[in-house]
Nucleic acid binder design. Structure first.
Lengths: 330, 330
DNA sequence: GTGAAAGCGCTAACAT
DNA sequence: ATGTTAGCGCTTTCAC
């Protein structure tokens, strides 16, 4: 079932059929309709490989994430993939498992099969990305590299709101449990939270780096307790949940003895007991926006100099893991 | 950077370069090494579109799931994708959003760009799948259709273990909250749990169908209470968690007043409080096995008659949502 | 507005 | 064991 069959059925030449199919208005309306009808009747589907070979465009996108199983990603993947599909693109989803070597190899392989890639990976070194970005349109998520487009989430503002929330409840000694070294999100939080704490006149101890997982949170518990903080902000929901678990083992109750805030607003946080107060990250919108930016770059035809940055708002979702400090303890 | 350049650099003809690259032993060892060296030096990556056009094989796989954001899927996706990549395949991940129309259209589109698809979708009608399966190698997960390969999880055994666990604890009136109509998993559970209940001499009320979500669980709560059951098995972790939530609103405590068991063993269940007793589904192994089955079918060259079924074991993970029945209530 | 023909990069007969 | 050639299905000049 090739374009040949369609052309024959419609009584036109292949090239005419091709034109009719590729939305060219270079073909008389009546002819186009005849071709389209024939294609529909025969159930014709273009061979994307052949199309890619001539045009040099695959209509495929790559989406590279560090860990599909981290609940931060599924909504982003889901949204990106749905958005791309509506626009006629399929997406390869690849998981680097936080392994930088895998990642670089992966990008190289993918490079020939996609028109662009959305990269949500905190670990790969800037210069590697920059080099790779020379060959292929990239859109970064939650990461900034000069010359590359990016979708950013305003986690700085989220961190400020988190500090303000805790300070407003009466906490005067806070702790921030940072994420992995080199994480843009972590750096943003650190800076913004530090400033907000200074503004509010409360103390903030910055702890880390830590693994962005429940284990990371558990591991950080002892250190948090050592600071004497009564309010703590975790790098993400998983870390916050780990913290709550770790605290529980030390007999410290949340939120009665200590308040905990996460970041991301994942299912995990919603299901946790106590339900987690968290900075909601717009993961689904970020997925859509990243795809938009990428397609915009691709379709503008000027891949090299069409750098765009979009920042998406975050918001604080107050649930049950935060409360005023226990007066009896201070 | 084409195979031409590589051939030229190695001082051989294109076809020789091609042979050397495609692992043919049809080329003298020394020549092959020269070609490989040249390819490596030039950073050559084959154009997969061109390759696909000539061979008719894309080295792409499709993975169609009903909802990426359902915590059941990410581990399966992650495993499938990693496994495929090691074997030289990329995977398109597509989410049907539980929409049958989307799904069929999607498969049609994907059909031309992949060598086979792994389908994890409870909803699409058997005959549609069977028709589609005629054109393209399919591997089903948790679903059986004559003539198609499948990876099954032994949820029947899991259901038996769940019933036995509750009966062993002393419960005599159980309820099973089923999943969506037409779900293979749900049917398996229903049959096996019914048998196990009869064997154990306990009563089992079967409820449903229900949405496979937290909401579905919440919605089923009243009906569960009406049965007078003291032990209930949910279709999956999400439903079980919804049940616990719904029960909490009715002032019924888990596990003190009522025991709840889920199915899947997702993060959600692990993070829930009380931590959920659940039937662990081997999602990651299933992803790998599905890919293996698919590649096996592809590489055996006999796509039509190479039907294989693999059943993976499940196990009961006992945590905090189950306990002996409250003696004061019966 | 439509037909003719070239060619994208690669593999697979077919030669030798 | 290697070179030669045709052609996969499609788009895109180039003619007319």
């Amino acid at each position: 079932m090739t374009i040949r069959d369609v052309a024959q059925a419609a009584g036109v030449h292949v090239s005419t059929a091709s034109r009719a199919l590729t939305a060219s208005h270079l073909v008389k309306k009546e002819t186009r309709e005849r071709v389209l009808a024939a294609a529909a009747r025969l159930g014709y589907r273009p061979n994307e490989s052949a199309r890619a070979l001539t045009t040099g465009r695959t209509r495929n996108l790559g989406l590279i994430v560090s860990d599909i199983a981290n609940p931060f990603f599924p909504p982003l993947i889901k949204a990106a993939q749905a958005h791309a599909r509506v626009r006629g693109y399929q997406v390869f989803v690849a998981d680097t498992d936080e392994d930088v070597r895998v990642e670089e190899e992966l990008i190289q392989t993918l490079a020939r099969q996609v028109d662009g890639v959305v990269l949500v990976s905190p670990r790969l070194a800037d210069d590697v990305i920059a080099r790779l970005g020379g060959d292929l349109p990239f859109v970064l998520v939650n990461r900034q590299i000069t010359g590359l487009s990016a979708v950013l989430m305003d986690v700085a503002h989220g961190a400020v709101r988190a500090v303000e929330h805790l300070a407003g409840l009466g906490h005067t000694r806070l702790a921030l449990v940072c994420g992995p070294r080199g994480s843009w999100t972590s750096a943003q939080m650190r800076r913004a939270a530090g400033q907000a704490a200074a503004d509010a006149g409360v103390r903030l101890d910055v702890l880390g780096p830590n693994a962005p997982t429940e284990q990371g949170g558990i591991a950080a518990t002892a250190e948090v307790l050592r600071t004497g903080a009564t309010g703590v902000i975790g790098y993400n929901d998983l870390v916050a949940i780990g913290l709550i678990e770790g605290l529980d083992e030390h007999g410290v109750r949340v939120p009665d003895d200590l308040s905990v805030i996460g970041v991301d607003d994942t299912v995990a946080g919603r299901l946790n007991r106590p339900r987690l107060t968290t900075v909601a990250m717009p993961t689904a919108p970020a997925g859509r926006t990243a795809v938009d930016l990428l397609l915009q770059t691709l379709e503008s035809g000027e891949p090299d100099h069409a750098t765009a940055q979009t920042t998406l708002a975050t918001s604080l979702v107050v649930r049950d893991s935060t409360a005023p400090p226990d007066q009896s303890r201070g």
